[in-house]
Amino acid sequence: MAAQPPTTVRGGSAPQESGTGSTPPDRTTAGPRRLSPRAATWIQSGFLLLIAAIALVPLVAIFIGTFQDGNDVIRRGMTFDVDVSTLSLDNYVLLFTDSGPYFRWFANTLLLTVAQVAGTLLVSSFVAYGFAMYHFKGKTLSFIMVLLLITVPFEMLMLPLYVQVNDMGLADTYLIIVLPFLAAAVTIFFFRQYFLGIPKEILEAGRVDGVTEFGIFFRLVLPISKPAMAAMAILNGMLCWNNFLWPLLVLRTPEKFTLPIGLNTLLTPYGNNYELLIIGAFFSLIPILILFLAFQRFFIEGITAGAVKG
């Protein structure tokens, strides 16, 4: 194995397309191991598919769980050993006929998500524009605060904010779920980066035409910022749809519950609604999964740009 010195230098040329006919084994003698690119591709694909399969197990399990008896799943856990004869559509019937407040939670979450995403995009891009396009006194300090807020997890603010909100008499309102997070540090940071890449000539042209500073932002800059908007809409939409801790603290009235809060109430040890738990959890994933399949690029861009913590 070690006898043959490397004769051919690999890399730089010959793009290895998979499955393009057979490759003579002596084509790649670069390393100590002599794997044909084709065999290496097979091994790599096998490895990646195995990991992907493991990652998908919990999702497949919850999907299968929607056809199983809820009490049984709660008692015995999710299993590989699925008895096909026990699967039924009972949970689906229940969900669409007698699911109590489930679709109310769904609608509440949808409403909150739309409102919060619209508000966050507007306010955060507005703020980011100030940071990106102007020089002013106090800018560095203010921007350091943005960077600082990016790294402080909400959990650390939880208690102080909770006390504050109770004192302000804003508990149990949707307003207070949204309001503290409209100027969102991560989103501000992302928009600022995007705006920095916009040529300043656009601003000057606007000023020459007599457009106000705010008019320049709303009428000239925002319309050309759609890619950034899309990425941040996805990120914020996902965070908001899944938002759990803050609504858990401030919401009291069951009619106002969102999906994560509502599903959590179904998990109590005294629950008698286990039929609804699994299928309800599964249906709460569907909007996001659909969006992900449609806009995968924006998801990965938005979440890796901003995912400090989910």
């Binding site: 759990f244 999906l259 994560p260 599903l263 709460s284 996001i288 995912a307």
Partner: peptide
């Protein structure tokens, strides 16, 4: 999996 809520 990153898209799922911590609840689910």
């Amino acid at each position: 999996p990153a898209l799922t809520s911590v609840v689910v």
